[in-house]
Write a protein that binds this DNA or RNA. Structure first.
Lengths: 192, 192, 192, 192
DNA sequence: AAATAACCGAGACGGTACGTCAAGTCTTGAG
DNA sequence: CTCAAGACTTGACGTACCGTCTCGGTTATTT
C-alpha cells in the first residue's frame, strides 16, 4: 500500500537536467520564438513525451528553464563608500540582466497574453534579483539613504537597464553603468 | 518611351490601408505570436499574395503597421510650473505607451533576433515620442533645468513606464504617474 | 535491445486504406490534374502530413492507389471454341480498361515525364493484366494458335482498346469487341 | 458601315507565332502539366493578357499549338511492292507520332475531362494523319487489299504505335517497325 | 486632324493548392 | 508508471500559377 505517486518506474532526474540545459542553450542561440520543442527533444536526447509530461507547454518549459538558473547572489556591499556600493550593485545587475538574453525577455512578452501564470513566473524571476539585492544595500547604508531608497533603486535601476538593452539596443558597458550611477541613481538615493 | 518602373497596374492603396488596419487590430487582440498572416488576409479582404508582395514576412508587416500609427504629438507645456509641465508630459507618455499594447512591445522583443530591421523600426517608433517630446520641455523651462535634463527625462521616464507595464504588470494609473514625477523625475531634473 | 526499425508508434493501416480509397474515388471523379492533395486529405479524414509521410508527392500517391486495385483475374477460357475464348478475353480486357477511367490513363501520360517511377508503376499495371491473361489462352488452345500468338494478342488487343477509348473517344461496346475479335485478333492468331 | 471586328488596332500576328512557338517548345521540354502560362508569356515576350485574349485557357492554347504543326504529308507509296508501301507508311507514322512527344498526348488525356472541345480537337489532329495516309495506299494497291483494309490499317497501326510509346515505353526503332509490318499489318491487310 | 477602339507590355489582384514545419496528443514496446 | 520513438491532427507558413483586372501607351480605322 504505497501512494500512487511512487508506483511504477520513477522519473529519471537526469532527464530534467538534460531538458532544461538544452532549453537554455537553445533559448540563447535562437530566441524564444524560434525555439522548437522538437529541437529541445533532439538536443537533450529526450522524447517529446518526456518533456510534455513535465511541462504543460513551451511557455512552462521556458519558465522552468529560466527559473533554474543559478540565483546569482548579488555582491555584498563592501561599505567603503555609497558610490562604490551602488556601482557594484548596478554593474552586477546590468551583467545579470544582459546575460539572460533578449529571447528570454521575449518569452515574457509573448507569453503574457496566453498564459498569465507564465507571466507571473517570469515577473517573479526578473524581480527576485531586485529584492535580494536591496536588502544588503539597506543594511549597509541605511542612515545615508533617503527613506524608500532601496525600493526606488530596484525600480529605476532595472528599468533603465532593460530599456537600454531592449529599446535602445546597446550594451551595458562600463560607461553606461557609470552614467547610470552618477547621473541617475546617486542623485535619487541621496536626497531626503 | 517611359521608365520601366512606372509600368503595369499600380498598387491599390486601399489594400495597404486594409492590410495595415487589420494587422494593427489583430495585433492588439491576439498579440504578435498568435498573429497569423492568414487572419490578416481574411480580415483585410486581401489575398495572402497581396500581403506578401508588400511585406517579406510577418515581422516586416508588423513593423510597417506599427510605423504607420499616427505620431501622436506630445502636449505643449503650458508653462505654469515645472511640475505641471513634467506631469502632463509623463501622463501623456504613459498613456501613449500603454495604448500600444503589450503585443506590440512583444513584437519588438520577439522579433529583434530574427529581423534587425524590425528591431530598428520599433526602436525608432518607441523613441520618436521621446525626442519629439523633450523639445517643448526644454524651450519652455530651459533655465530651471539641469543640463542634459531633456535627454535624461526621455531615458528615465519611458524606461520606468515600460518597466511598470511589462515587468511589474500593473497599469500606469494617476498614483503611479504622480510617484514617477515627484519621486523620480523632478529630483533628477531640478539639480544644477 | 531491439532493432531500431520497430520502435515508435506503428503506422495506422486504416489510414492507408482511407487515403487510397479517397484517392481512387477522386481520381475517377475529377481526373488526375484536378486531383488535389487537400481534397484527398479532406475526404479520407487524414491530415495532409499523414499523406506526405507515406507518399512523396501526388504522382507517388496516384501510383500507389492504382497499384492497390484488385488484380481482377481474367476469365478462364471455357475451351468450347477458339473464337469464344478470344471473345471472352477481349470483352473482359475492354471492360477492365474502360473501368479504370480516363483520369487514370491520364495520370500515366501526364506523370511520365516528372516521375519515372510512376510511369513504371502504371506500365506494370496496364501490362499485368495482359500477361496474366495469355497464360490461360495458351494452355487451352496451344495447337490451334500461331507461335507467339499469346504475346501478339496482349500487344494488339490492349493497344486497340486503349486507342478506341482515348483517341477515338468512343466506348468499347459489343459491336466493337466483335469487330476487334473477328477482324483483327482471330486473323492474326490463327495463322501458322 | 464596316464590321465591328475590324475596328481598332489589329492583332499583331507576330505575337501569334511567338506564343505558339513558345508553347510548343515548352510543351516538349516540361510536358503539359508543368507548362505554365507564365512561362509561355515569359519565353514568348508576350503579356499574359495577350495570350488570354487569343485562347480561353491552357487547354485551348495547347490545342492550337499542336494544331499549328506542319501537317507532315505522308509519303506517296512507290508501288514497288505492298510490303514496301506499307513499311514506308508505318515508318512515317511511327516517326510522326514519336516526334509529337508524350507531353502532347498527356494534354489530350488531361484535357478531355475539362474541355470536350480540346479533346475533339486533339483527336482530330491525331487522326488527321491517318485519313490522309490511307488514301494513297488505297489508290495504289486497291486490288491487292482486303475490303476495308485502309481503315483497318489506320486503326491498328496507330494504336500499336501509341501503345508502344506510352504503355510499353520503348522507342519505335527499325526492328519494331519491321515487326509491326510483318507480324501484324501485312497479315491483316492481305486476307480477304 | 481628331476621336475612337482594339491592341500590347507590365504587373497587381483574389484565389487555390502546393509541400514544409512545428505544436501538442497518442500509441507502441521495452524497462 | 516512465522512457524513446515516432505516427497522428491541426494549423500556419511562404511560394507558384491561375485567370481577371487595371494601367500607360501604341496602332489602325472612322469621323
Amino acid at each position: 500500500m504505497t501512494q500512487p505517486s511512487v508506483m511504477g518506474r520513477p522519473r529519471d532526474s537526469s532527464r530534467d537536467l538534460a531538458i532544461l540545459d538544452a532549453t537554455l542553450s537553445l533559448l540563447t542561440e535562437v530566441g524564444y520564438e524560434q525555439l522548437s520543442m522538437e529541437a529541445v527533444a533532439g538536443r537533450s536526447g529526450a522524447a517529446k513525451t518526456t518533456i510534455y509530461r513535465r511541462y504543460r507547454d513551451k511557455a512552462a518549459l521556458v519558465a522552468a528553464a529560466v527559473e533554474r538558473r543559478a540565483p546569482a547572489k548579488p555582491p555584498q556591499p563592501a561599505g567603503e563608500s555609497l558610490r562604490e556600493d551602488v556601482h557594484s550593485l548596478a554593474a552586477w545587475l546590468a551583467r545579470s540582466i544582459s546575460e539572460q538574453d533578449v529571447g528570454l525577455l521575449g518569452a515574457l512578452f509573448a507569453g503574457m497574453r496566453n498564459d498569465a501564470r507564465l507571466a507571473q513566473a517570469m515577473r517573479r524571476i526578473l524581480r527576485r534579483d531586485e529584492t535580494a539585492m536591496t536588502d544588503g544595500l539597506v543594511r549597509q547604508a541605511a542612515e545615508r539613504l533617503a527613506p524608500g531608497a532601496a525600493t526606488l533603486f530596484a525600480e529605476v535601476a532595472s528599468a533603465v537597464i532593460v530599456h537600454r538593452i531592449v529599446v535602445v539596443g546597446e550594451p551595458c558597458d562600463a560607461a553606461f553603468v557609470a552614467h547610470l550611477v552618477d547621473d541617475i541613481l546617486l542623485p535619487l538615493l541621496r536626497r531626503t
